[in-house]
């Protein structure tokens, strides 16, 4: 069987004795960033390059990806949409809010939005979730790849505003955006600790792994928000 569904909407395809990661193309015939299109049994897939996507790397690092066909996702740091396009493929009945704060990058993202009805673009600073509370509703998952020194805080604040109870947080932590000299291992440890206890929302870290060889000095992490009973 050349095509295997690893989890909802995420496929491993065996072609010419090579394995590749792919998603089902939501907009047939269109390659978003030059990735290969593959047709298997009448279905078109888009190759997903783990070197260009932290989420793709997380899949290959055997993370359990908490995304389903009908999930709603808040994506922070959408950039020009390389990874967002695959998330959009996966969520064929869902919705992704794509937040990006660089106007120039947003321009590319908007072109992607024109083709894909399940992406809602938001030009905003992820540090200021108040600026998009009127747009974003509760989501099942947050994916964040912002490469900022206060990554953990951004994740926590957005989770507090937008994540469903027990919703999932997927995070890519880049050690060098936090400290260029300190050892990545130590930074990762501190960031994970921050997430577990440092904010007024707490997370239970389900999986954490470095994303080598696809991305140097990056930690991938999946956590579940932990809500204390208020009653």
């Amino acid at each position: 069987m050349p095509v295997e569904e690893l989890s909802d909407g995420i496929f491993r395809i065996n072609i010419d004795d090579r394995e590749m990661l792919a998603t089902k193309n939501l907009v047939s015939g269109i390659s978003v960033y030059g990735e290969r299109l593959i047709v298997e049994e009448g279905v078109e897939y888009r190759q997903w390059d783990p070197n260009r996507s932290k989420l793709g790397a997380m899949v290959l690092k055997n993370f359990e990806i908490p995304l389903h066909y009908d999930s709603t996702v808040l994506y922070l740091g959408a950039a020009s949409g390389t990874t967002v396009s695959h998330v959009s493929d996966i969520l064929r009945d869902g919705l992704v809010y794509a937040v990006e704060f660089s106007p120039r990058t947003m321009r590319d993202l908007l072109q992607l939005c024109d083709q894909r009805p399940n992406i809602i673009p938001i030009l905003a600073d992820a540090n200021k979730p108040q600026s998009y509370t009127h747009i974003v509703e509760k989501v099942d998952a947050i994916f964040q790849d912002v490469a900022q020194p206060n990554q953990a805080e951004i994740a926590a604040v957005n989770s507090k505003y937008f994540l469903e109870q027990h919703g999932h947080l997927m995070l890519s932590i880049k050690s060098r955006s936090i400290d260029t000299v300190a050892s990545p291992k130590r930074i990762f440890k501190e960031e994970v600790q921050k997430l577990e206890t440092g904010f007024d929302v707490e997370f239970e870290v389900l999986q954490r792994k470095e994303l080598e060889p696809f991305h140097e000095d990056h930690l991938g992490l999946v956590a579940r928000m932990f809500v204390e009973d208020e009653e």
């Binding site: 919705l95 106007p103 908007l110 939005c113 024109d114 009805p117 673009p121 030009l123 747009i135």
Partner: peptide
Amino acid sequence: DILLREVCIRAAKSRISSN
């Protein structure tokens, strides 16, 4: 949902082009 998406696209576009 459709309306929201259109409004968001338009808002982002106008902010970009006014820049």
